[in-house]
C-alpha cells in the first residue's frame, strides 16, 4: 500500500460521502447525473465479485463493502427517495454508448478469459468513462453547485493519485497493471477540462460555470 494509493482511496471515500451529504442535506439530486451513479454501481459490483472469495485485507474488504453500499444508497436517493428532484431532462447521455464498448473491450483485453477477469476488466474500462454523463450534464446545465464541483474534484483526484501509486509501484516493485493504468490515464484525462475550470473558478470562490 503506497501513500498515493491510500490518499487516492481516501479521496474516493471523501467524494462518495460528499455526494451523499449533498443529496441528503439539500434533499435534492439536482445537477447530479443518475446515469453516472448507476454506472458506478455497475463498476463496483462487477469489480468486487471477489469480495467473498479472495480476502486481501480488512481494509480492502471494508472499502469494497463501503463503495458498493454507498453507490447503491446514492442510486436509491436519486431514483427513488428524491426522484422528484432528479433532472432527467439534462441527464441525456446514452449509457449504452460506453457500456457496450467497455464490454467488448473486456472480452478482447483481459488477464484471463474467465468470467471474473472479464468482469474485472469491464469494470475498469467502465469506470474510466462512467463520469461522462455527469460531465455532460454540467456542460448542459452550464454550471454546477459548489459541493458538486468539490465532489468531482475529489473523484477526479482519486484516480490521479492512483497514477502516482502505479508509477511508485513500477519504480519500486518493477511491475504494473497495464489495463488499470491505461484506463486510469483515460479516466483522469477526461477530468482535464473540469480540473481547469475548478482551479480557475471554484478555488477563487466563484461558481463553476462552463462558459457558453
Amino acid at each position: 500500500m503506497t501513500l498515493f494509493r491510500l490518499a487516492g482511496d481516501l479521496s474516493h471515500v471523501l467524494a462518495i460521502l460528499l455526494l451523499l451529504y449533498k443529496i441528503w442535506t439539500t434533499k435534492s439530486a439536482a445537477g447530479i447525473s443518475g446515469k453516472t451513479q448507476l454506472m458506478f454501481c455497475m463498476v463496483y459490483v462487477t469489480r468486487y465479485l471477489d469480495l467473498f472469495t479472495s480476502f486481501i485485507s480488512v481494509y480492502n474488504s471494508t472499502m469494497k463493502v463501503l463503495f458498493i453500499s454507498a453507490s447503491v444508497a446514492t442510486v436509491y436517493l436519486i431514483y427513488f427517495k428524491f426522484k422528484a428532484t432528479y433532472d432527467g431532462n439534462h441527464d441525456t447521455f446514452r449509457m449504452e454508448f460506453v457500456i457496450v464498448p467497455a464490454l467488448i473491450l473486456a472480452l478482447i483485453w483481459n488477464y484471463a478469459f474467465t468470467f471474473f477477469e472479464i468482469s474485472w476488466a469491464f469494470s475498469i474500462f467502465l469506470e474510466a468513462v462512467a463520469i461522462l454523463p455527469q460531465l455532460f450534464m454540467v456542460t448542459k446545465t452550464g454550471e454546477a453547485e459548489n459541493i458538486t464541483s468539490h465532489y468531482l474534484f475529489a473523484l477526479g483526484s482519486y484516480r490521479a493519485l492512483y497514477i502516482l501509486n502505479w508509477i511508485d509501484r513500477y519504480y519500486f516493485e518493477g511491475h504494473w497493471d497495464p489495463i488499470a493504468v491505461t484506463a486510469g490515464i483515460v479516466q483522469t484525462v477526461l477530468y482535464g477540462d473540469f480540473f481547469y475550470l475548478y482551479f480557475t473558478r471554484v478555488i477563487k470562490g466563484r461558481k463553476l460555470q462552463v462558459l457558453p
Partner: peptide, 10 residues
C-alpha cells in the same frame, strides 16, 4: 495484482 492471486488494488 496478478491474474490469479486476485487484484490487490481497489
Amino acid at each position: 495484482f496478478s491474474g490469479h492471486g486476485g487484484h490487490d488494488e481497489l
